[in-house]
């Protein structure tokens, strides 16, 4: 198993991990009958009646982004004994975007709606190894990660015993969930990495700029992260990476070169590289260009859209005998 994902994924070895949608889901068929109480209807997952391996025609996930999920979920199956467990769903959902995704918890979920755990996992004892009871299902999901970084497996960490005073559950402010259960993650403005590259040891990475200007999502770079990256899991992970792995977040957009071409100088330098200006890239942003949105010119999707410079003809009608930058194009732009 990939060591980076070991943490989240180790939890769910029981089920298929559904990282790559198609192949893994197909594998589920062999496990589904014993793993799911109700017989599955094909149309719960497949839009077509004839899914194939190459084109499984999977129904879209009912939620396109974790934001659509609830901020906080109250688990109150044992509400007679305990105060309901407050589960910071949004926080976990965001983190899972950097690793296994929603399917870490919502495994075997039919595509059209989000199923509750108890729909499959009965509150009584499990009938098979592959499908634990509700108690096992919850605890495996929670404790497999939490015991490692908090080193805490006491019931009371999650379950407050119900007393006369604790009948009313005070919901945390969902906007302050970070402050309540999790320290605020401080987004760095700039990071200067000290590297061992012989063609310049410093790599300047303007984190804030990448997020704000280029609209990079956390998970764009932080893929396949494991909990121990930030949390003390008690594991001493071997973090040595190959050349390719090391450069992979940057090489999504930038030419990072390889060991042969040694085109390192673009990033590796002996001093801090100044921030990006549009002028340096080629076009001076003046006149109307100053008010244009980035996406007016940089069409396409994802961070790669900035990699190739847009041509004038994206906005300007093409005219003979006019060459930039000797003359400005005469024809008015066709703004969308």
């Amino acid at each position: 198993m990939n060591r980076r994902t070991c943490f989240f994924l180790a939890t769910f070895w029981v089920f298929s991990l559904a990282r790559a949608e198609g192949a893994d889901r197909l594998e589920q068929h062999s496990r589904a009958p014993s793993a799911v109480a109700q017989p599955l209807n094909c149309t719960e997952c497949h839009t077509s009646g004839h899914p194939t391996k190459s084109n499984p025609c999977l129904a879209p996930c009912p939620r396109s982004a974790p934001k659509q999920g609830p901020d906080v979920v109250l688990l109150n199956q044992l509400s007679s004994e305990y105060v309901p467990v407050i589960f910071a769903h949004q926080l976990h959902a965001q983190m899972t975007q950097m690793s296994g995704g929603c399917a870490i918890c919502h495994h075997h979920n039919s595509a059209n709606r989000i199923m509750a755990c108890r729909e499959c996992h009965s509150a009584s004892h499990p009938e098979s190894l592959a499908k634990p009871g509700l108690k096992g299902a919850y605890h495996r999901l929670c404790l497999n990660c939490h015991r490692e970084w908090s080193h805490e497996t006491q019931c009371s960490v999650c379950h407050a015993r119900r007393t006369a005073n604790s009948t009313r559950v005070v919901l945390p402010d969902p906007t302050d969930i970070m402050g309540l259960l999790h320290p605020n993650v401080k987004e760095p403005v700039i990071k200067i990495y000290q590297t061992a590259c012989d063609q310049g040891t410093l790599v300047t990475f303007r984190h804030q700029e990448h997020v704000r200007h280029y609209g990079l999502k956390c998970a764009t770079c932080h893929r396949e992260e494991d909990c121990s990256r930030c949390h003390d899991t008690g594991l001493s992970l071997d973090r040595t990476k190959t050349f390719e792995q090391h450069h992979s977040p940057c090489s999504l957009c930038h030419q990072t070169g390889d060991k042969v071409t040694k085109a390192c100088a673009g990033c590796h330098s002996d001093k801090e590289i100044p921030p990006f200006t549009h002028k340096e890239a080629g076009l001076v942003l003046n006149d109307t260009h100053q008010v244009a949105e980035c996406s007016d010119c940089h069409t396409g999707s994802g961070p790669t859209k900035y990699r190739d410079p847009p041509s004038c003809s994206n906005c300007h009608e093409k005219q003979e005998n006019i060459s930039y930058p000797a003359r400005l194009p005469g024809t008015k732009v066709k703004l969308p």
Binding site: W13, V14, S30, R31, S34, H125, P126, S128, L129, A130, P132, G133, K135, G136, H139, R140, L143, N144, T153
Partner: peptide, 24 residues
Amino acid sequence: PVEAITFGKRSDLIKLAQAQILNN
């Protein structure tokens, strides 16, 4: 809490264990 221990008929448990190994 994680139902790592399953209680049952020994003959059933053997099948469960075999299936678990086979399916993973």
